[in-house]
């Protein structure tokens, strides 16, 4: 079917089966490969995107559910994502980097909803995302520092 997707503010007219997971429409048809495949069953968070601001596992969401909505991926930009990029950089967070698209999207969602998350808030928000390299303590620290950076800027 013809599908119109709006990703990071840009419109894409594509052909896709309506039950195709959004992940594969984004990666294989639109051609944005920053969003990753990790498990296919909404267990690892590598495919995380925001749909109308809501954190979504794109591997478990049919493309039809995103029609008429705004999709935000790692190729996008927002104030919170840029702050997180900076503290990810400051803390030298990634190892292999593969899961970090999903980690950054999940962290962006956390900061969008919670201006000052506690360690527990971070643990709860980020535990849907697996990092096999084990960068969790750096991610936790980078999220705290993004909050601090934001407060400094205000």
């Amino acid at each position: 079917m013809d599908v119109n997707l709006s990703i990071n503010g840009k419109s894409y007219a594509i052909q896709a089966q309506e039950d195709m997971p959004l992940l594969w429409a984004i990666r294989d048809i639109v051609g944005l490969t920053g969003t990753k495949f990790g498990c296919g069953v909404s267990q690892c968070g590598a495919c995380s995107v925001l749909i109308d601001g809501n954190l979504t596992k794109s591997c478990g969401t049919p493309v039809s559910a995103a029609i008429g909505k705004e999709i935000f991926t790692i190729e996008g930009t927002s104030e919170n994502l840029e702050l997180l990029r900076q503290t990810w950089n400051d803390g030298n967070v990634p190892q292999c980097g593969y899961c970090q698209s999903g980690q950054l999207i999940a962290a962006t969602f956390l900061l969008d909803k919670n201006e000052n998350p506690s360690d527990e808030d971070i643990d709860n928000a980020m535990s849907s995302n697996i990092c096999r390299c084990g960068t969790y303590s750096r991610i936790r620290k980078a999220i705290h520092e993004a909050v601090a950076l934001k407060n400094e800027k205000i």
């Binding site: 490969t33 990029r85 990810w88 030298n92 990634p94 970090q100 950054l104």
Partner: peptide, 11 residues
């Protein structure tokens, strides 16, 4: 720091 940080954080 990793020379690849920018790519890792931008997908």
């Amino acid at each position: 720091k990793s020379v690849d940080l920018k790519d890792f954080t931008h997908g």
